[in-house]
């Protein structure tokens, strides 16, 4: 499931909603990204954001055995300490959930069309994020 929203999210409530009534989930991994030090404004490309996040989520489900997943990304104005992104993955055993969560974050950071602005200055993309995403490239042979 994908959500792009301006309002905050409650991690506990999101996990509860995802696992409610399920008996096939043995592991839940969450990643929460927070705004560090500065005030940010997030712009995105609404028509593409949702599609791209759905593609990334679908790829995670192809690669790992996931029972459920959730990606929430906030947009608009955010202050230091605010939640900005949430990734939740649920699987029967922890390995799939751990790896899928990391994959989702790496791909989100390099493919989902969001742009952060700090005051008048646009945040620059980091090469380390590209490197992190590359390790998931399918190896040939």
């Amino acid at each position: 499931m994908i959500r792009v929203q301006t309002q905050d999210f409650d991690i506990g409530a999101e996990i509860a909603a995802l696992t409610s009534g399920r008996t096939d989930i043995g592991a839940v991994v969450t990643f929460t990204g927070l705004v560090r030090d500065v005030t940010l404004e997030l712009e995105h490309y609404p028509a593409m954001t949702e599609r791209e996040l759905e593609r990334i989520e679908a790829e995670a489900h192809e690669r790992w055995m996931l029972q459920a997943s959730l990606v929430i990304h906030r947009v608009g104005k955010l202050s230091p300490g605010d939640n900005i992104v949430l990734v939740v993955t649920a699987s029967a055993h922890r390995g799939d959930a751990f790896q899928a969560a990391e994959f989702l974050m790496d791909y989100l950071k390099t493919r989902a069309p969001f742009w952060k602005r700090e005051g008048e200055k646009w945040v620059e993309a980091r090469e380390s994020d590209d490197e992190a995403a590359k390790r998931w490239s399918k190896k040939s042979g």
Binding site: H73, M105, A112
Partner: peptide, 9 residues
């Protein structure tokens, strides 16, 4: 659409 490298997350 044209845009700079993305910086979400």
């Amino acid at each position: 659409a044209f845009f700079p490298p993305v910086t979400g997350g």
